[in-house]
Design a protein around this nucleic acid. Structure first.
Length: 235
RNA sequence: GGAGAACU
């Protein structure tokens, strides 16, 4: 069982969902871990809806959900912006007293953030113990996604006060959030702030986000200008 | 043996 589960995980990382699925159905016995592995396999390939369905099947089989499964399924809900399902998970998580766990809490936070539920996201964030850069990034990006740049900056200040610094991924997340919400001005502002007040040297991912943001808004000339001023070769 | 943020 353990070895097949490892094989499923390997297929997942190689984006071979079909192969992973074949291995999974061949199993005579399935525990939480093998179910989690196949759920992650679907998630990894952007099939969040299927992942959620698999989770429901798992529950029908009477398999008890653990911390890690919760994280995966919350991730699926975040990807799918499945708020109702996510809230149901939150209830289960509270019953199991996993709410303050860093990773579970961050996944919850991310789900609420992606669904635009800032109040819920803030409440979860407050209760997470030992918040790290990832948790901070998620809460900041959630605010950026809703266009609350000022509040997001306040959070970054607060983050600094607690002795933590945003990293490259923090700003990729913010820029990406702006891009998905069509916040062109905000995005341009964040790109500038990132370089000036936060001292982050933009890498290719940041440029990609900005180019994506501008292109989505139909600002092709500006996007092309940015490509030209990129210090690295575009991919 | 399966887990949390971004691009892809």
């Amino acid at each position: 069982l353990a070895v097949v589960t490892a094989v499923i995980a390997m297929y997942a990382k190689a984006s071979c969902v079909d192969e992973a699925w074949v291995s999974f159905v061949k199993l005579s016995e399935r525990d939480v871990v093998s179910w989690s592995a196949i759920i992650s396999a679907f998630l990894y390939n952007g099939q969040a809806k299927d992942a959620i369905q698999l989770f429901e099947e798992m529950q029908k089989e009477g398999i008890k959900t653990d911390k890690i499964t919760f994280v995966s399924i919350l991730d699926a809900c975040a990807d799918d912006v499945a708020l109702a399902e996510g809230r149901r998970m939150h209830d289960h998580i509270m019953i199991n007293a996993f709410e303050t766990d860093l990773v579970v809490g961050t996944a919850l936070l991310n789900m609420y953030g992606r669904c635009g539920m800032l109040e819920d996201a803030r409440r979860v964030f407050k209760d997470i113990s030992g918040r790290d850069v990832v948790a901070w990034t998620v809460i900041v990006a959630a605010h950026a996604q809703q266009g609350h740049a000022k509040e997001a900056q306040r959070l970054l200040d607060q983050m600094r006060e607690e002795g933590m610094a945003p990293n490259e991924v923090t700003f990729v997340s913010i820029l990406n959030a702006c891009s998905h919400s069509g916040l062109v001005d905000e995005g341009r502002q964040w790109f500038r702030l990132m370089k000036t007040t936060y001292g982050i040297v933009p890498v290719v991912d940041h440029y990609n986000c900005m180019i994506d943001l501008l292109a989505r808004a139909g600002l092709m000339e500006e996007a092309e200008a940015l490509v030209k001023e990129m210090p690295m070769t575009p991919t």
